[in-house]
Design a protein around this nucleic acid. Structure first.
Lengths: 246, 246
DNA sequence: GAGTGGTCTAGACCACCGT
DNA sequence: CGGTGGTCTAGACCACTCC
């Protein structure tokens, strides 16, 4: 685990409500007690309740209707969707398969000018490139090529390099906090068809992604090719808030 | 515009900070005044400042570092990305093209069993299906097939049916608040190649989407086929919050 | 009009960062 | 250590929904 601390009151309230949901005490369409009552029940202020509920709203469990009440959503929540998750291992497992991976190559090399610019690398600073094929059971589903500045991995034990790149980046003090991904439908060429065990010309989803840490520094570049029908790639979209955006 | 009311204090503060950003008073890496000072400057409480900043954090403009300060992000924010926007017209315009559309068909028909289940349609309840091709300049970029329960459109003037489907749904009292989209790379078949003016076998991104209103009711089903290189399809991903999710 | 969520305040104390 | 954001409170008033 990365963070193990005393849960905040907000967390406790959120967990309490979540427990009711999974226990079936609250089911689809049910109306929650109003905020004052929830505040009483959990022994916290209304502001605390509101923040807890806010989390559940964003997660898609609840809906608020001004002047009416707060209701349990008709849970169409797709977990491990593209917009919230970064671990493909979890995605594959969630889809009911056994995740696996084959590391094709792992090497330090000079960055291209583009990579150096994206990752803000000084002259001569190398990067680590990891080339992998992810498996669902025995079937290849994703081919990826990830690049991380070698400087970020200085203090990292050599054998730790075998764990998830996200874990590595976190250990290095640069946990990935968000990413921007471009989606490009494409076709399997000779190399990809061999790696992913599909026919040449099979449609694939190519994802070109940049991962950023909390400081806004680009810490990893990823290129991925996904087999179309291996598992569902979902994006949960939200209506533009209106007040915030232009 | 759909909502035009007095902006809240939170909105005013957010806009004030946003103005500083676009005016260049605040640039990448700059540290913001602390929350107490911002509260003074805008004449509001610290809680209000925090909520305004929260919006800018989520939008990717700012980063907070506990114990250190709040900083301007190295703006990698992609506007009109798939996860936040629902209007393709705006997306196309943002990409520097003139948006346009050709309506291929617009008709009431019986739902299939699948559609009836998804949209919670009673027996015999028809739906409206709109088939369109979106244009960037004169180039076709998206072919879409949208289906809405006809019952939702009862009070809607006939000529209003020409505006955006999202506007129509809002008028009908069912504004779309979120959507779930599945992404499927595919190939242009004969029909699609003709509609989108690409060669047969060209890679396309197929999006199968369900739109929900604030009550969690499915109000529209959309099938879309996007030309790959027409404009960038971006997804902004966030790390799982940790406290909230499991 | 009663009940609900939406906004806002003034103040307190805690936890973390840097010097 | 001082400064920063993180959490929390108790209360006030507003805006919306629904009976």
């Amino acid at each position: 685990m990365t963070t193990a601390r005393r849960p905040s009151l907000v967390d406790q309230v959120r967990q309490g409500l979540l427990d009711d949901l999974v226990a079936g005490k609250l089911v689809t369409g049910d109306k929650l007690p109003n905020e004052d009552r929830l505040a009483d029940r959990f022994g916290v202020s209304r502001a605390t309740v509101r923040e807890a509920v806010l989390g559940l709203l964003e997660a898609g469990y609840l809906t608020r209707r001004h002047g009416s009440g707060t209701y349990v959503t008709k849970a169409p929540r797709s977990r491990h969707a593209l917009d919230t998750t970064v671990s493909y291992t979890a995605m594959i497992r969630e889809a009911g398969h056994t995740p696996g991976e084959t590391v094709i190559s792992k090497a330090l090399r000079e960055p291209t000018p583009f990579e150096a610019e994206q990752l803000v690398l000084g002259a001569g600073e190398p990067l680590l490139e990891v080339e992998r094929v992810r498996l669902a059971g025995s079937r290849p589903v994703i081919y990826s090529r990830d690049r991380i500045p070698a400087a970020l991995l200085d203090g990292i034990a050599q054998d730790a390099l075998d764990s998830s790149l996200y874990v590595i980046l976190e250990t290095a003090g640069h946990p990935v906090s968000r990413a921007s991904a471009e989606l490009i439908p494409t076709l399997a060429d000779d190399k990809l068809s061999e790696l992913l065990e599909v026919e040449c010309g099979t449609p694939l989803l190519h994802i070109d992604q940049v991962d950023y840490d909390a400081r806004g520094r680009a810490v990893m570049l990823s290129l991925e090719w996904h087999v179309a029908d291996a598992f569902e790639l979902i994006v949960n979209r939200r209506a533009s808030p209106g007040p915030a955006d232009s």
